[in-house]
Write a protein that binds this DNA or RNA. Structure first.
Lengths: 342, 342
DNA sequence: TTGAAAGCGCTAACAC
DNA sequence: GTGTTAGCGCTTTCAA
């Protein structure tokens, strides 16, 4: 067994003693360098370096109340969507010299509450992605601690929203122009803000273009649910499916394939998010490209803004999506088109 | 702007005052409940609950030196391999009541050192996944702080190793039995322990089976590098490619497709890891299924073991991989087989 | 510009 | 069982 000696790390006092100054001066040399004589400061920094002194973040946090740590809560780490979000958040945090604490709330409102409570004292603020908390709980949490939500709109809590409404409109017009007249929407989780937005946008354009739209769901936002959803789709008389997210779309693709149905020639499929894999599944997925990483970054930036200056005027930031056409959509099957147009 | 009142959270003293006991009793009621009179304890817990008291983890950590936080460092959050690892680690940490701090070292040894130094005071220990640190730096870090490495073997630092040697042997025999006589290995990062293991296993079996093996690389473990690697493969006279990881394999698939080469009928491709996407890319990838999430979980469990009992005997844990056959491998093209066998 | 001293919220001896 | 009393390592007045 290795000698796990863990010799006590040098403290501010050790450095002070070596330099013949007071501990408070060493402290200042690190936290307010401009308030220390240049020569003394240099001497302190040098000995500190040489002694391998590292300020203890815990001790630093106690009196100041600031930990330079941010909490990121996601409902399901398993979902690649959150991978991109985590990545963006981690980058923004690291850039600002902040540390990121990651927690999975497992789609549970109670777990989320527990985690927020437990972490509240250890972080300077939270980013709650696709929070499962009720509006009132969210507001309560916001009253206690700086907080930014992603994909929720709960004024006055600042939010970062990926708005797929615009992209959805594009998608429906794309389908309409390909001759599709009847489309299905595979819905996501019941409480999802994005889901409501998407369905509404889809309905609006469908109505305007005289298309028939049917909603199937709610469904869990997973590949497996997509597999099941595909069967439900086949029960409807549609030539295209728009799904809540790419995971569902990938599940649909898999199931249709297994049932011998040709995508896109018999049925067109449109996903949402453009996650890792959307471009190399089979066929490559026509989907709404969402700035997920940017959303993570923006959320952290917003949070840092809140921390710096809690008086800054705040409003939700909305990030648009855009349609990326690949190979899972094409003209509606001729027979059906004739039925409608002929 | 919302009232961001942040009223001071109640402390142990507030609760103590309300209950008419000493602060230390309140402290005990939480940390050593058995050492407090049952009635008093209940009274304390009740008032605490009712006042919304939450122990401050920072303050708790200062005297005890234990933060109940673990640091997980990965070289590249972008890589889905690490998604699974993060997931496993997060779950194991959460289960044990620990908090996970996540950091991306961006493939840089220096960044990794900096992050370890910065976090050392804030976490109870580290999991370093695919660390870019030298053996000596790793040992030095281990002397200061409990530490577990993933995919490195640096005694006495405890390690969790995903050993693809076994799986690689299976893969090569699979190819041999399909009539392949010349195979290419698309290598990963130069310093990778796993890469060395894989190449050695591949060579050994190739020799035993009388196959010709050529190594191409080192390559970054990314889809883009796979795209480039595919061209290099075509320069060699081979009928099968084994890649360092699935990202490379997916890049190869994409490029071969673009160049009009049929996988698996003209060239067979074998990946490694079985990451998200390996089963729905086109064609679905024959690959080595690696217990990535288990590795993350195991690493955290090992670390927790170190924390509990630093005297426990330690040895590396190796997790095996196994071949998962899908559709990117098939019999070697007839022409070549005839050349060799005829 | 620097030092002394009082905490930050909690734990852990050590008494009583 | 419970209270008292020191700290943990650092920041931050307040004086000098």
């Amino acid at each position: 067994m290795a000698a796990r000696d863990q010799q006590r790390a040098p403290t501010i006092h050790d450095v002070a003693a070596r330099c013949g100054v007071a501990a408070s001066t060493v402290s200042r040399a690190f936290s307010r360098p401009e308030r220390v004589n240049a020569a003394t400061r240099q001497r302190i920094l040098d000995t500190a370096e040489q002694m391998g002194y590292q300020p203890n973040p815990i001790a630093r946090a106690l009196p100041s109340g600031r930990t330079r740590t941010l909490g990121l809560l996601v409902p399901d780490i398993t979902n690649p969507f959150f991978l991109d979000l985590i990545r963006g958040a981690e980058r923004a945090a690291a850039t600002a010299g902040y540390t990121l604490v990651l927690a999975d709330t497992e789609e549970s409102s109670d777990t989320e509450t527990t985690v927020v409570d437990r972490l509240a004292g250890a972080v300077d603020g939270f980013v709650l992605a696709s929070s499962r908390l009720s509006d009132s709980r969210l507001r309560a949490a916001y009253a206690r601690k700086p907080l930014v939500v992603v994909n929720r709109r709960v004024p006055p809590v600042p939010g970062v929203l990926i708005d797929s409404a615009q992209g959805t409109r594009q998608a429906v017009e794309h389908l309409a122009s390909l001759g599709h007249r009847r489309i299905a929407y595979l819905a996501g989780p019941r409480a999802s803000w994005s889901d409501a937005r998407r369905w509404r946008a889809l309905q609006t354009v469908a109505r305007r273009r005289g298309l028939h739209a049917v909603r199937i769901g709610p469904l869990a936002p997973t590949v497996d649910a997509g597999v099941a959803g595909a069967d439900a789709v086949l029960l409807e008389d549609v030539t295209a499916v728009v799904t809540f997210n790419d995971l569902l779309a990938i599940g649909v693709l898999r199931r249709l394939r297994a049932r011998g149905i040709d995508v896109p020639h018999q049925i067109s499929v449109v996903g949402c998010d453009d996650i890792f894999g959307a471009d190399f599944c089979h066929p490559p997925l026509t989907t709404l490209t969402a700035p997920i990483e940017a959303a993570g970054r923006t959320a952290v930036d917003q949070l840092l803004g809140l921390l710096d200056n809690s008086a800054a005027p705040r409003r939700d930031i909305v990030l648009p999506t855009r349609l990326t056409i690949r190979d899972s959509t094409s003209e509606a099957p001729t027979r059906l088109r004739q039925e409608v147009t002929g």
